[in-house]
C-alpha cells in the first residue's frame, strides 16, 4: 500500500491509467542497476529516483573530472576527483530519501554481475565503451535480465532494449557483431553535448519505467538520434540465429 504522502507526491503518475497505484507500487518495489554514472547515468538515475524507484544500484569506477561537468548534471566543481558512483549516490540519497541507493565504486566485471544481476529487475547500460557493453550484454543474457542500452557521442545517440525473457529478442551482439576493429570513438575523441544525453537517457528511463509497470516495451528496435538534423530514425533488427551470445538459447 502507498502511504497518503506517497499518493500525493506521485499523484501525477498514479492518475495515468498505464501506471496507476499498482504501477507506483511496482516502481517502489523495483531494483534497478545502472552501469556507468557519466553523461547518461546522471540523468537516468535522477529520473528513476525521482519517479519513485525503490532501489538503485549505481556502478562506476571513474572519478569526476572538470571536463565532465558540462553534461554530468549531478556533479559540481567541488566534487572533482571523487568517485562518480559514490558522489551520485550521496546526492541522490539526499534529494530522494524514498529511494535506497547503493554505490558500487568499481566498473562492473563478470563476478560483480553474477552477484548483482540476480537481485535486480532491469539493468541500464550507461557505459562509455564497447567492451563493457559486450560484457553486460552477455551477463544479462545469462541471467535473463532485461537490458536498456543507451549510447551517445557528438550530436548522435542510440537506444535499444534487450529482453532475454523474450525468445525473439535480439541482443547487443546481434546488432554489433564483435569485430577486431571495434570503434574507438568516444566522448574523449569526438566530443559530446549534454542535451543529447538527456534525450537518450530520458528514453532509457522511460523504457525502464514502462517495463517495471508492466507496459509494453519495444525490443528489436534501434532508435537513432541525429541531433544536428533533429531527427529520430527507427530501425528494425532481428535476433541472429548464429549469435554466439544469445543464438543457442
Amino acid at each position: 500500500m502507498l502511504t497518503t504522502q506517497e499518493q500525493l507526491k506521485y499523484s501525477r503518475q498514479i492518475m495515468m491509467k498505464k501506471i496507476g497505484e499498482s504501477g507506483q507500487l511496482a516502481l517502489r518495489n523495483a531494483k534497478v542497476l545502472i552501469l556507468g554514472v557519466g553523461g547518461l547515468g546522471n540523468p537516468a538515475s535522477l529520473y528513476l529516483a525521482a519517479a519513485g524507484v525503490g532501489t538503485l544500484y549505481i556502478a562506476d569506477g571513474d572519478t569526476i573530472e572538470p571536463s565532465n561537468l558540462p553534461r554530468q548534471i549531478l556533479f559540481s566543481e567541488n566534487n572533482v576527483e571523487e568517485n562518480k558512483a559514490e558522489c551520485a549516490a550521496e546526492k541522490l540519497s539526499e534529494q530522494y530519501p524514498d529511494t535506497i541507493i547503493e554505490a558500487i565504486d568499481d566498473m562492473l566485471d563478470e563476478e560483480l554481475c553474477d552477484y548483482y544481476l540476480p537481485m535486480v529487475d532491469v539493468v541500464l547500460d550507461c557505459s562509455d565503451n564497447i567492451q563493457t557493453r559486450y560484457m553486460i550484454n552477455q551477463a544479462c543474457i545469462q541471467h535473463k535480465t532485461p537490458l536498456i542500452v543507451g549510447a551517445a557521442t557528438g550530436f548522435d545517440g542510440q537506444q535499444l532494449t534487450i529482453d532475454p525473457r523474450d525468445e525473439h529478442s535480439a541482443c547487443y551482439q546481434c546488432l554489433f557483431p564483435a569485430s577486431e576493429k571495434a570503434p574507438a570513438n568516444n566522448c574523449q575523441t569526438i566530443g559530446i553535448i549534454g542535451p543529447i544525453l538527456a534525450m537518450i537517457a530520458g528514453m532509457q528511463a522511460l523504457q525502464t519505467i514502462k517495463l517495471l509497470t508492466n507496459n509494453k516495451v519495444q525490443v528489436n528496435q534501434l532508435n537513432m538520434l541525429d541531433g544536428l538534423s533533429n531527427q529520430w530514425q527507427q530501425f528494425s533488427m532481428k535476433k541472429q540465429a548464429n549469435c554466439p551470445v544469445c543464438g543457442s538459447r
Binding site: G41, D128, T153, Q158, N185, K238
Partner: peptide, 26 residues
C-alpha cells in the same frame, strides 16, 4: 527500408538504403 541488414542483403529500385555508425560512448 528501415530493416537492419548485413552487407550481402539484396537491393532493388525504389529501396532506401541507410548507413550509420555504431555509437558506443556515454
Amino acid at each position: 527500408n528501415h530493416d537492419m541488414v548485413d552487407k550481402s542483403h539484396p537491393v532493388k529500385a525504389g529501396d532506401e538504403v541507410a548507413f550509420f555508425p555504431p555509437v558506443t560512448g556515454g
